[in-house]
Amino acid sequence: MPNEYVEPVGNRILVRKDESRGQTRGGIVLPSDAEIPTITGRVVEISAMVERDADFPVRKYDKVLYHPKRSIPVDLEADNRLFVVPIADVCAVFRRSTEPVGTGELEIAEESGEGGAAGTA
């Protein structure tokens, strides 16, 4: 049986939503009924349209912050953490830099798509 996969079309990407946290960064354990909305995830697939568009420096495996309101859940896996997200709802892409914060200008991915922030793969 062939493997199933999702290929987004138009100006969309496929994101695997990060796990919800049961504890704050400071170490406070949250009660099970408390819910912190998770709006970050890893890009799993990119539509051909987004891949060609130099205005959106999003690549496969990038960690992104996105607005979840128009995200469409994909019922392909048991844990149901896949979402098709319009590229316009991506608010930020997380990048790593070799410079400490505050010592220089922020590195922005080149529009040509040839590079990006140092330390990304």
Rank of each mutant, 00 (worst) to 15 (best):
M1H: 10
P2V: 13
N3D: 09
E4Y: 14
E4N: 14
Y5E: 13
P8T: 10
P8L: 11
V9A: 13
G10K: 06
G10D: 03
R12M: 09
R12G: 01
I13D: 03
I13E: 01
I13W: 00
L14R: 05
L14H: 04
L14D: 06
L14E: 04
R16F: 06
K17V: 12
D18F: 13
D18V: 00
D18H: 15
R21Y: 05
G22T: 09
T24E: 10
R25T: 07
G27C: 11
I28G: 00
I28E: 11
V29P: 01
V29Y: 01
L30G: 03
L30H: 05
P31E: 14
P31N: 13
D33K: 14
A34Q: 14
E35M: 10
P37A: 11
T38A: 12
I39E: 12
I39D: 12
T40P: 01
T40K: 15
R42P: 00
R42H: 12
V43T: 03
E45H: 04
E45W: 01
S47P: 07
M49H: 10
E51A: 14
E51M: 10
D53H: 03
F56R: 12
F56C: 03
F56I: 15
P57T: 03
V58G: 01
R59K: 12
R59M: 08
K60P: 00
K60V: 13
K60M: 09
Y61M: 04
Y61E: 11
Y61I: 00
D62N: 15
D62T: 04
D62H: 14
D62E: 06
K63R: 15
V64M: 09
V64W: 05
V64C: 08
V64K: 03
L65D: 07
Y66F: 15
Y66C: 01
H67M: 10
P68K: 04
P68D: 11
P73G: 02
V74E: 09
V74N: 08
E77W: 00
A78R: 12
A78G: 12
A78P: 05
N80S: 12
L82T: 00
F83V: 02
V84P: 01
P86F: 04
P86E: 05
P86D: 05
I87F: 05
A88P: 00
A88T: 04
D89R: 07
D89Y: 07
V90L: 11
V90M: 08
V90Q: 06
V90R: 02
V90D: 06
C91A: 15
A92W: 11
V93Y: 01
V93H: 03
F94N: 09
R95I: 06
R96V: 13
T98N: 09
T98G: 02
G102Y: 07
T103Y: 15
E105I: 00
E105H: 08
L106Q: 11
L106P: 08
I108A: 01
A109W: 00
E110K: 09
S112W: 00
G113N: 02
G113Y: 02
G113I: 02
E114M: 05
E114G: 02
G115K: 02
G115W: 03
G115V: 02
G115Q: 05
G116S: 01
G116C: 02
G116E: 07
G116D: 04
A118T: 15
A118L: 14
A118K: 15
G119S: 09
G119T: 05
T120M: 15
T120V: 14
A121F: 09
A121W: 07
